[in-house]
Simulated assay, not measured.
Amino acid sequence: MTDRPTIRTRRLASELRLFRERATLNLDEVVAALHSSGGGRWSVAKLSRIERAAQRIKSQDLDQLLDLYEVPPERREGLQALARGARQRGWWDAYADTIHSDYTTYIRLEAEARSLRCFDGLVINGLLQTDEYTGEVCRVGMMQFGTQTAIERRIDVRRVRQRVLDDREPEPLRLWSILDEGTLRRQVGGPEVMRKQYEALLDVANLPNVMLQVLPFEAGAHAAVTGTFAIMDFADAHMPDVVYLDGLTSALYEENDRHVYHYSLAFNQLAMSAIGVDESREFIADLAGASSG
């Protein structure tokens, strides 16, 4: 499994490159200045890897660069926090043999996020899935490559992920999910699995930090006809909003402010096209009733 750079690592790398450019220094000049000040083992290759987020930076090395670039105290604190977050390990590392690095990156971001706005146009968001629903999604998605043990490990991961919604936590994740009607009507695992899934949605909709809306077929063409996406927002002022786009074999993270803004506009339009929260609960309850019959 490759160790891909996290959003924090890429953000820190970008900031360091900008500070070097503002100091009007090239890579060779930075390395020479660090050597002359007794700044440890530096090379152009090492600095280049740090600026490309191909290598995480040690605390001591970061301090040396910030001193050289004369970064003001208020900015130093934020950059040091980014570095600490990039090095921090989480519960998901225990599943490194099971989940892809793209998924690990997403889980790390989700665990740190303050809010998550998502349009679920294909399957129900993992934070809202029952074990049975997750198992069926994983079984089909992994095709012949997934063993029962691997599927059960995926279910465990989803179950632990869902703790971010626990309203007993000091700051639970605020989730706003817009569910396409087709997502809700798709029979994943059969009527009994779907009945339990509908009931689980109704239960979680009662949490004060969760809002569910249904986008009905009658809404017609909408702002997200290209597919599912999720927007994550963070309490840390140094962390930009991130849009997550899931693919069949890889994932894409959008951090560009203009692109994130476009997705935010699309989500707002979806929210206006979707039915209200109370009406959405009734819609899901009707589906649950139909599955029971």
Rank of each mutant, 00 (worst) to 15 (best):
E255K: 13
I50C: 01
N125H: 15
R258M: 07
L265M: 12
R41P: 05
E15H: 11
A32V: 13
I99A: 08
S101P: 11
L270D: 03
V204N: 01
P191Y: 00
G276E: 09
R20L: 10
I50M: 07
H262W: 09
T6R: 08
P72I: 07
I275Y: 04
G126F: 05
N125Q: 11
L212V: 05
G141V: 10
V160Q: 12
Y261N: 09
D3P: 01
D286S: 15
F267L: 09
A223C: 09
I99S: 06
R41G: 07
R84A: 15
L34M: 14
V225F: 10
H238G: 07
A86K: 10
D93G: 02
E15R: 14
H100W: 09
S59M: 08
E254S: 11
V204K: 12
R154W: 12
Q129K: 02
H238K: 10
L202Y: 01
T98S: 14
H259N: 11
R75Y: 02
E171L: 12
D166P: 02
G276M: 06
Y263K: 13
G190N: 04
L109I: 06
S250W: 04
Y198A: 00
E171D: 10
L165D: 01
Y106W: 15
Q88P: 04
I99W: 11
I99P: 07
E279K: 14
G40T: 14
I275H: 04
I57E: 04
D246G: 09
L128K: 02
K58M: 08
D61N: 13
R4V: 15
V140P: 02
C118Q: 10
R114D: 09
L245R: 11
E279R: 15
D180N: 11
G182Q: 07
L128Q: 01
A23T: 13
M239G: 03
Y103T: 14
F267C: 05
E74P: 01
Y253V: 12
R117W: 12
L127R: 06
F145I: 06
I275S: 01
D156V: 05
Y253L: 14
A237H: 13
V188S: 00
E51A: 03
E110L: 13
L116V: 13
Y261P: 00
L109N: 11
P170Q: 08
F283A: 04
R114E: 11
V123N: 01
L27S: 10
C118K: 04
R258L: 12
Y69P: 07
D67W: 04
V31W: 04
T24C: 09
R87E: 12
D166M: 06
T183S: 00
G38A: 11
Y261S: 14
D278I: 06
G90R: 15
P5A: 08
Q187S: 12
L122D: 03
I284M: 05
G135K: 14
G40Y: 08
F145E: 09
G182F: 01
L248I: 12
D203K: 11
R84G: 07
L212H: 03
R56D: 13
S177Q: 02
G40W: 08
Q55M: 13
A13S: 15
E77Y: 06
R159F: 01
L68A: 09
L245E: 03
